[in-house]
């Protein structure tokens, strides 16, 4: 009797993202049934596992905006054989990176001190809170990234094509209507 092939292990996380890419991942709909035959999930919002372990594929949504993002991203890089930037924010910083031309202190003061309706506001400084970085960075500026899957978010069909290519051992290819930056 032959043993069934080992399932690939996938971890996913959202750094400075909005979880839109994860929602789009769920948008592969009934392909999810096919997918769970082929893969199992490690750390991911879908499993609630808190620390990433050794994996075949890591999917990173969002750019890097604070110190915790850097730690999580590095842990993913150490543990994942193949690391993928999933979506516009992981690829180029996206919406959060639009604060990059403003001084960080100004952003914080604007939100926590000067916003209409706030009295005696203070910039939060609880030691539990991760320190924000001065600029939001796409993930390839922090660790080596194997593949990029752009889109805001990448569509369900694009994610499915990408993953099936990868699982089948092909170089993932997005062309024609599947490649979008918006």
């Amino acid at each position: 009797m032959s043993t069934p092939p080992r399932k690939l292990r996938i971890a996913t996380t959202s750094l400075a993202g909005c979880f839109g890419c994860h929602m789009s991942f769920l948008d592969i709909d009934e392909h999810l049934f096919e997918l769970v035959e082929l893969v199992e999930f490690d750390r991911s919002p879908l499993t609630d596992i808190k620390e990433v372990g050794p994996c075949d594929i890591g999917l990173i949504e969002g750019g890097v905006c604070n110190a915790e993002n850097v730690h999580v991203l590095r842990a993913f890089r150490r543990n994942c054989k193949t690391l993928i930037a999933l979506g516009a924010c992981a690829v180029n910083g996206g919406l959060p990176a639009q604060r990059n031309h403003l001084p960080l202190s100004e952003c914080l003061r604007e939100v926590y001190q000067f916003r209409p309706g706030i009295a005696n506001g203070q910039i939060p400084n609880d030691p539990e809170l991760p320190l924000p970085l001065d600029k939001v960075r796409p993930i390839h500026e922090v660790v080596r990234v194997d593949y990029f899957l752009p889109g805001c978010p990448p569509s369900g069909p694009a994610i499915w094509k990408f993953l099936t290519d990868l699982i089948a051992g092909r170089t993932p290819r997005l062309s024609g209507g599947l490649l979008h930056y918006d």
Binding site: H140, V145, L179, Y181, D182
Partner: peptide, 25 residues
């Protein structure tokens, strides 16, 4: 930042990115 650009979809730079399969910056 294409997702927030009004030209997205009508932009020649972006369309060339698609044509030449530019996936990463």
């Amino acid at each position: 930042f294409c997702p927030s650009c009004e030209k997205s979809g009508n932009c020649e730079l972006q369309a060339l990115g698609y044509e030449y399969e530019m996936l990463s910056p």
